[in-house]
């Protein structure tokens, strides 16, 4: 994906998640983003470049906002699944991350994004 495509998709996703630019900026800052609101606004409009690290943080912020939006619309099942499978999986994953042996918690996941361009 070219950088331009990426910024356009992020802005589309932002609209889809019903976020203003400043809402998204706040989520991005909460996740460790270091750009100011002007940087983010400019990037979403394809005017200002953002380094890949900051792009990743912004992408994660907009993705989580989309998840929240869809979760708000989703319909619960009549009988919820017993236990909290997500929490258990998270615990296992963290065990893997902190394990002394070289952890391979990523089997089957997409490869981590490449380093800075």
């Amino acid at each position: 994906m070219t950088s331009e495509e990426r910024s356009r998709r992020m802005d589309t996703a932002r609209l889809r998640a019903e976020l203003t630019v400043s809402d998204l900026w706040l989520r991005y800052v909460a996740m460790g983003g270091t750009g100011d609101a002007f940087d983010v606004d400019g990037y979403l409009q394809g005017l200002v470049p953002l380094d890949t690290y900051q792009q990743d943080v912004l992408a994660q912020a907009v993705n989580e906002a989309l998840d929240d939006r869809y979760r708000a619309y989703s319909v619960p099942l009549s009988t919820p699944r017993p236990g909290d499978a997500g929490a258990q999986q998270l615990d296992r994953l963290i065990e893997g991350l902190l394990g002394d042996e070289a952890p391979d918690p990523w089997a089957g996941s997409e490869p981590p994004c490449p380093g800075p361009a």
Partner: peptide, 14 residues
């Protein structure tokens, strides 16, 4: 950046 990618991947998987 690498550390953040790890966190984001863990978030996606769980």
């Amino acid at each position: 950046q690498d550390a953040f990618a790890t966190l984001a991947a863990a978030a996606r998987r769980t």
